[in-house]
Amino acid sequence: MTRENRGRAVELLTVRQVLDELGGISRRTFYRWRELRIAPACIRLPNGELRVRRDVLNDWLEDRAERAAS
C-alpha cells in the first residue's frame, strides 16, 4: 500500500509485513513493544488496523543498529 506524501510515495506496511521484516517476531512481542513504547511509531486507521510507514521502520532499525567498536 502506498500513499502520496508531499509529492513522494510513502509505503504503509501492515503489522504482518513488519513482523516478517523483523525476522518473524510474534505479534504478541510487537504489541508488547508497543505497550513499552519501544516499537516503531504506528498509524491507526479508522477501522482500527495499524500501519507502519516504511521510512519510520527503516529509521527505527537504523537507530537500533549496533555500532562497531572503535
Rank of each mutant, 00 (worst) to 15 (best):
1 M>T: 11
2 T>P: 05
5 N>L: 11
7 G>T: 02
7 G>W: 02
7 G>E: 02
7 G>M: 02
8 R>C: 10
9 A>L: 10
10 V>M: 15
11 E>R: 02
11 E>T: 02
12 L>A: 04
12 L>K: 02
13 L>E: 00
14 T>Y: 00
14 T>D: 00
15 V>W: 01
16 R>T: 14
16 R>K: 14
17 Q>S: 11
19 L>K: 06
19 L>T: 09
19 L>I: 08
19 L>G: 04
20 D>Q: 13
20 D>T: 13
20 D>S: 13
21 E>C: 07
21 E>G: 11
21 E>M: 11
23 G>S: 09
24 G>I: 10
25 I>Y: 04
25 I>V: 13
26 S>P: 02
26 S>K: 06
26 S>M: 03
26 S>Y: 03
26 S>D: 02
26 S>A: 04
27 R>H: 12
30 F>K: 04
30 F>C: 05
31 Y>F: 14
31 Y>Q: 10
31 Y>T: 09
31 Y>L: 08
31 Y>R: 06
32 R>M: 02
32 R>S: 04
32 R>N: 04
33 W>C: 05
34 R>H: 06
35 E>D: 03
36 L>A: 12
36 L>C: 07
37 R>A: 09
37 R>Q: 07
37 R>K: 08
37 R>E: 08
39 A>N: 09
39 A>I: 06
40 P>Y: 02
40 P>V: 01
42 C>M: 10
42 C>A: 15
43 I>S: 00
44 R>C: 13
44 R>Y: 12
44 R>L: 12
45 L>D: 01
46 P>G: 14
46 P>D: 14
47 N>H: 10
47 N>Q: 11
47 N>K: 10
47 N>Y: 09
49 E>A: 03
50 L>K: 01
51 R>I: 00
52 V>N: 01
52 V>C: 00
52 V>P: 00
55 D>Q: 11
56 V>A: 06
56 V>F: 03
58 N>K: 09
59 D>Q: 13
60 W>K: 14
60 W>Q: 15
60 W>Y: 14
60 W>D: 15
63 D>Q: 15
66 E>M: 11
68 A>W: 08
68 A>F: 07
69 A>T: 09
70 S>R: 14
